[in-house]
Design a binder for these strands. Structure first.
Length: 651
DNA sequence: GCCTACGAGCTCTACATGTC
DNA sequence: GACATGTAGAGCTCGTAGGC
């Protein structure tokens, strides 16, 4: 911890982390916290920060957490000051009850900002006239000016008193303040408990235990449940991923353009024009220019390279490795190792669970993205002997390097990510880094159909698999996956009805007959009629085709389907049911599906079947294969061979 | 259930950059 | 050179993921 300054402490932690705690906040009486009249509160706050970090009541080393403790104590001190309570010793249980119930409704009501700003405006009117400057009114009311976004009602009152005609324009700012979440309240109330626990080592303390039933029980009774990270709509997710991949693919060319244009400014504009024309598709609707032309979709090549390219790299890493924001931000240059044959591995710090570096498997695009970022910041890293990946050259006159400003929403707007309908308003989707971690889980679960949650749990580095299941049990996700299954089923049915693919397998033949029946009942030229019949068929039967490498499973979760599905036979030790109650395809294989009532396949899987049959035959012929296993493989190979002959007309 | 450690979103300030 | 605009980085309150 640094030495005490007049108005702030700089609290340092591990890994160069630090937090600044300001002690010059204006109190409701108009005097700053570090004014001599607030010495007691200041000393108590400082003592509690020390006690939180050292000694018997220490619970954290994190500078940010210590800063939060300070904020809570100062906040409570400000409320006491407003209530004319000079020492914490004078606080009564009733005061605590009043404070916590007010605190649950947010800053504005707790600190009675409406009344205070009205009083301040009244008092200042005679001295400065109307309108009273807002900054002056806030200062006189003892409300920190940076909290303006938290006091919409107080602002409305201020504007009403000073600019009556402008009221309509500001009334939109008012909204009912919802109760804060349990977690937030817990963090607000916990430091109050310390005013009792640490009573022997602080200047001013509570004389009773404020939360005998526990801090959490109070927070729980007053707060609302926490929310969760939203799931990106599929089209939005795929659009921004495609854009990020395109930008990363174009990255080296963009860097060359930036260097060319900076070397020869006279040709810069022409070079940008030509580049934009040549790479119109990859740039996803963005044009490059060295001049400011007013369009949000025109950017300077330097901005493209040091702002948008790092963001594209960030998105690629987040989406394809499921790493958290903090884990990506801390990546070092050279963090991807491996090769195209044995695979690529991203070395990153694993926050929350392991809390150490670990390797995560990743696709080649991640390796390309990291290499690109290494190139962007190479000179900076060499010059300053740092390893951080996400750094770019800083401002020439001020700092020589800086961390990349990753702004996913800015990038999304630039590449014109589709808008979404939220509460009947077409609006931009609001991205957050954690949504890509969630998107990874969505894509994994959808692609592998709930298979191997253990693998997903490892990728997310959860200690507890229940945490992973929280992702895949989520109602929003289930509905999303259900929707995708529905789309896939309809697409396959259309494809089977209109060609060129023909369904085969036992269930495939059933589908073929239904499609033929539809064709017989409608005019051959009535494609709309056929489409209608297909949709009705899929919806009425609740048909959901789920993909496997060798075809599709059409079994539902009804008792009769489960009884008849080949993979659910009691002699199959690998049988299993997915979380939505249908047969788990990971407990099945080609041999079982070849004779199953619910299996569909088509020519897109033909190569797979042929290769499988060959590999089984070779394995059976292997001299080292035991006799028992050889016989089993020969039998399996025979069944698959017959399936191929019957369905793909091959000998 | 309880708790920690972060992130999101907002505003403000200082400074850089662009435009006329 | 004056002014407008853009942007990084700070602080704040409130929200969220996830460990045990």
């Amino acid at each position: 911890m640094s030495e005490a300054l007049d108005d702030q402490w700089v609290v340092r932690g591990d890994h160069d982390e630090y937090a600044t705690i300001l002690f010059n906040e204006v109190m409701p009486d108009g005097y700053a916290l570090n004014h001599p009249r607030h010495t007691l509160l200041l000393k108590t706050t400082q003592s509690l920060i020390v006690a939180s970090r050292e000694g018997p009541f220490a619970f954290t080393q994190s500078p940010k957490v210590l800063a939060r403790v300070a904020r809570s104590i100062i906040g409570f001190g400000a409320w006491c000051n407003m209530e004319n309570i000079e020492r914490f010793e004078n606080v009564t249980p009733d005061d605590i009850a009043r404070f916590v119930s007010l605190a649950a409704t947010g800053y504005e009501r707790t600190m009675q900002t409406v009344r205070r700003i009205q009083d301040a405006t009244d008092a200042l009117r005679s001295a400065v006239g109307v309108p009273v400057p807002l900054a002056l009114a806030l200062q006189h009311a003892g409300i920190p000016s940076n909290l303006r976004s938290k006091i919409p009602r107080a602002l409305e009152a201020y504007y009403h008193m000073n600019y009556p005609l402008a009221l309509e324009t500001v009334s939109a700012r008012t909204e009912t303040k919802q109760t804060l979440t349990k977690g937030t309240l817990y963090q607000k109330f916990f430091p109050l408990d310390m005013l009792w626990q640490c009573r022997k080592s602080i200047s001013s303390a509570l004389v009773f235990e404020p939360f005998p039933a526990g801090v959490w029980s109070v927070a729980e009774s007053l707060g609302k449940d926490n929310g969760h990270t939203k799931t990106m709509p599929v089209n939005v997710c795929f659009h921004i991923l495609a854009a990020a991949v395109n930008w990363v693919t174009l990255g080296n060319a963009l860097l060359r353009l930036m260097h060319e244009t900076s070397r020869d400014p006279s040709k810069a504009e022409e070079a940008c024009l030509q580049f934009s024309k040549r790479h119109a598709n990859e740039l996803c609707g963005v044009s490059l220019s060295t001049r400011k032309l007013g369009s949000p979709y025109i950017v300077h090549p330097k901005t493209a390279c040091i702002t948008y390219l790092p963001t594209a790299v960030y998105i690629i890493i987040a989406a394809f490795t499921a790493r958290r924001d903090i884990e990506i931000s801390k990546l070092s240059a050279g963090s991807v190792t491996g090769n195209s044959e044995s695979g690529w591995w991203l070395k990153s710090y694993i926050a929350k669970t392991l809390r150490r570096d670990d390797f995560t498997p990743c696709p080649e695009i991640v390796k390309a993205a990291v290499c690109l970022m290494e190139k962007i910041g190479r000179e900076v890293r060499q010059e300053h002997a740092i390893s951080l990946l996400f750094v770019v050259p800083g401002d020439a006159n001020n700092c020589s390097y800086r961390r990349c400003a990753i702004d996913i929403n800015l990038f999304a707007r630039l590449v014109q990510t589709p808008k979404v309908m939220i509460e009947e308003i077409l609006t931009d989707w609001k991205f957050s880094p954690h949504q890509f971690r969630r998107a990874f889980a969505v894509l994994f679960v959808w692609r592998f159909e709930y298979a191997n949650i253990g693998a997903l749990s490892y990728q997310l580095r959860h200690f507890n698999i229940d945490m992973t299941l929280n992702y895949v049990r989520d109602a929003e996700l289930s509905s999303l996956i259900g929707e995708e299954y529905h789309k896939l089923t309809l697409e396959k049915m259309r494809s089977y009805a209109n060609g060129p693919e023909k369904p085969c397998g036992i269930f495939g033949n059933v589908l073929k007959k239904f499609i033929q029946r539809f064709r017989n009942t409608i005019s051959m030229t009535d494609e709309a009629g056929l489409e209608r019949k297909l949709v009705e068929f899929v919806e009425q039967r609740k048909l959901r085709l789920r993909a496997t490498p060798w075809g599709y499973c059409g079994a539902s979760g009804t008792p009769s389907n489960l009884r008849r599905a080949a993979c659910q036979s009691v002699i199959n030790p690998s049988r299993g049911i997915t979380l939505d109650g249908v047969p788990d395809s990971t407990g099945s294989d080609e041999y079982l599906c070849a004779r199953c009532h619910f299996h569909v396949t088509d020519s897109t899987r033909e190569d797979h079947w042929v290769a499988k049959q060959k590999s089984m035959e070779q394995a059976a012929r292997n001299a080292y294969t035991s006799e028992l296993l050889r016989r089993a493989q020969m039998e399996r190979s025979r069944v698959i061979r017959i399936f191929i002959q019957k369905n793909f007309n091959k000998e």
